[in-house]
Protein backbone atom coordinates (compact mmCIF):
# COMPACT_ATOMS: atom_id res chain seq x y z
CA UNK A 1 0.00 0.00 0.00
CA UNK A 2 1.37 3.45 -0.82
CA UNK A 3 2.30 5.55 2.18
CA UNK A 4 1.80 9.26 2.74
CA UNK A 5 3.74 11.25 5.31
CA UNK A 6 1.90 14.04 7.14
CA UNK A 7 4.00 16.60 9.01
CA UNK A 8 2.11 18.27 11.86
CA UNK A 9 2.58 22.00 12.57
CA UNK A 10 4.81 21.08 15.56
CA UNK A 11 7.14 19.19 13.20
CA UNK A 12 6.17 15.64 14.16
CA UNK A 13 5.78 13.20 11.27
CA UNK A 14 3.01 10.67 10.88
CA UNK A 15 3.05 8.02 8.17
CA UNK A 16 -0.17 6.44 6.91
CA UNK A 17 -0.59 3.49 4.60
CA UNK A 18 -3.30 4.62 2.24
CA UNK A 19 -5.35 2.31 0.05
CA UNK A 20 -4.88 3.35 -3.57
CA UNK A 21 -7.80 5.43 -4.75
CA UNK A 22 -8.36 7.23 -1.45
CA UNK A 23 -7.55 10.91 -1.36
CA UNK A 24 -4.92 12.41 0.94
CA UNK A 25 -7.86 14.16 2.69
CA UNK A 26 -9.97 11.01 3.17
CA UNK A 27 -7.03 9.07 4.55
CA UNK A 28 -6.26 11.83 7.05
CA UNK A 29 -9.85 12.31 8.22
CA UNK A 30 -10.57 8.61 8.60
CA UNK A 31 -7.38 8.12 10.61
CA UNK A 32 -7.92 11.02 12.98
CA UNK A 33 -5.48 13.60 11.66
CA UNK A 34 -7.07 16.67 13.24
CA UNK A 35 -5.50 19.33 11.05
CA UNK A 36 -7.54 18.34 8.01
CA UNK A 37 -11.31 18.94 8.20
CA UNK A 38 -12.62 18.10 4.74
CA UNK A 39 -15.94 19.79 5.47
CA UNK A 40 -17.33 19.42 1.94
CA UNK A 41 -16.47 15.74 1.83
CA UNK A 42 -13.98 16.12 -1.00
CA UNK A 43 -16.14 18.02 -3.49
CA UNK A 44 -13.62 20.87 -3.90
CA UNK A 45 -16.00 23.40 -2.32
CA UNK A 46 -14.65 24.30 1.13
CA UNK A 47 -10.83 24.67 1.24
CA UNK A 48 -10.64 23.03 4.69
CA UNK A 49 -8.32 20.28 3.44
CA UNK A 50 -5.45 22.64 2.58
CA UNK A 51 -1.92 21.16 2.72
CA UNK A 52 1.59 22.21 1.71
CA UNK A 53 3.21 19.62 -0.51
CA UNK A 54 6.97 19.25 -0.16
CA UNK A 55 8.17 21.58 -2.93
CA UNK A 56 10.44 19.01 -4.57
CA UNK A 57 7.47 16.65 -4.90
CA UNK A 58 5.06 19.09 -6.51
CA UNK A 59 5.60 17.78 -10.04
CA UNK A 60 4.60 14.30 -8.96
CA UNK A 61 1.03 15.59 -8.67
CA UNK A 62 -1.54 16.14 -11.37
CA UNK A 63 -2.01 19.86 -12.11
CA UNK A 64 -4.66 21.71 -10.14
CA UNK A 65 -8.05 22.54 -11.59
CA UNK A 66 -9.59 26.02 -11.74
CA UNK A 67 -11.90 25.25 -8.78
CA UNK A 68 -8.99 24.25 -6.62
CA UNK A 69 -6.99 27.30 -7.65
CA UNK A 70 -9.85 29.67 -6.79
CA UNK A 71 -10.62 28.00 -3.48
CA UNK A 72 -7.02 28.12 -2.30
CA UNK A 73 -7.20 31.93 -2.40
CA UNK A 74 -9.63 31.71 0.49
CA UNK A 75 -7.80 29.09 2.55
CA UNK A 76 -7.48 30.03 6.23
CA UNK A 77 -3.70 29.61 6.41
CA UNK A 78 -1.49 31.51 3.96
CA UNK A 79 -1.51 30.28 0.40
CA UNK A 80 2.00 29.36 -0.74
CA UNK A 81 3.28 28.17 -4.12
CA UNK A 82 3.12 24.58 -2.81
CA UNK A 83 -0.44 24.84 -1.49
CA UNK A 84 -2.88 22.15 -2.62
CA UNK A 85 -6.29 20.81 -1.59
CA UNK A 86 -5.67 17.32 -0.26
CA UNK A 87 -9.09 16.08 -1.40
CA UNK A 88 -7.91 16.59 -4.96
CA UNK A 89 -4.86 14.37 -4.52
CA UNK A 90 -5.76 10.76 -5.14
CA UNK A 91 -3.19 8.34 -3.77
CA UNK A 92 -1.71 5.89 -6.25
CA UNK A 93 1.31 3.66 -6.25
CA UNK A 94 3.23 6.40 -8.05
CA UNK A 95 2.66 8.80 -5.16
CA UNK A 96 4.15 6.41 -2.59
CA UNK A 97 6.16 8.42 -0.06
CA UNK A 98 4.38 11.73 -0.69
CA UNK A 99 5.10 14.29 2.02
CA UNK A 100 2.57 16.95 2.99
CA UNK A 101 2.82 19.60 5.69
CA UNK A 102 -0.32 20.45 7.64
CA UNK A 103 -1.28 24.10 8.20
CA UNK A 104 -2.09 25.33 11.71
CA UNK A 105 -5.71 26.15 10.84
CA UNK A 106 -8.36 25.40 8.23
CA UNK A 107 -11.04 27.98 9.12
Amino acid sequence: MPSVIYIHPNGSRQTLDVPAGQSVMQAAVSRGIEEILGECGGNAMCATCHVYVEPDQLDRLPPMGDDEDALLDGAAADRLPNSRLSCQIKVTGELDGLVVRLPDRQV
Binding site: V29, G32, G38, E39, M45
Partner: peptide, 22 residues
Protein backbone atom coordinates in the same frame (compact mmCIF):
# COMPACT_ATOMS: atom_id res chain seq x y z
CA UNK B 1 -15.68 13.37 12.05
CA UNK B 2 -18.67 14.50 10.03
CA UNK B 3 -16.85 14.76 6.68
CA UNK B 4 -18.86 12.91 4.05
CA UNK B 5 -22.36 13.43 5.51
CA UNK B 6 -24.94 14.34 2.88
CA UNK B 7 -26.90 16.99 4.81
CA UNK B 8 -25.60 19.53 2.29
CA UNK B 9 -25.84 17.02 -0.55
CA UNK B 10 -22.80 15.77 -2.50
CA UNK B 11 -21.44 16.04 -6.01
CA UNK B 12 -21.93 18.95 -8.38
CA UNK B 13 -25.10 20.27 -6.70
CA UNK B 14 -23.70 20.12 -3.18
CA UNK B 15 -24.87 23.20 -1.35
CA UNK B 16 -23.23 26.31 -2.74
CA UNK B 17 -24.14 28.15 0.48
CA UNK B 18 -22.56 25.63 2.82
CA UNK B 19 -19.74 27.95 3.87
CA UNK B 20 -22.19 30.70 4.73
CA UNK B 21 -24.37 28.28 6.68
CA UNK B 22 -21.34 27.04 8.62
Amino acid sequence: KTSGHVGFGSGIHMCVGQLLAR
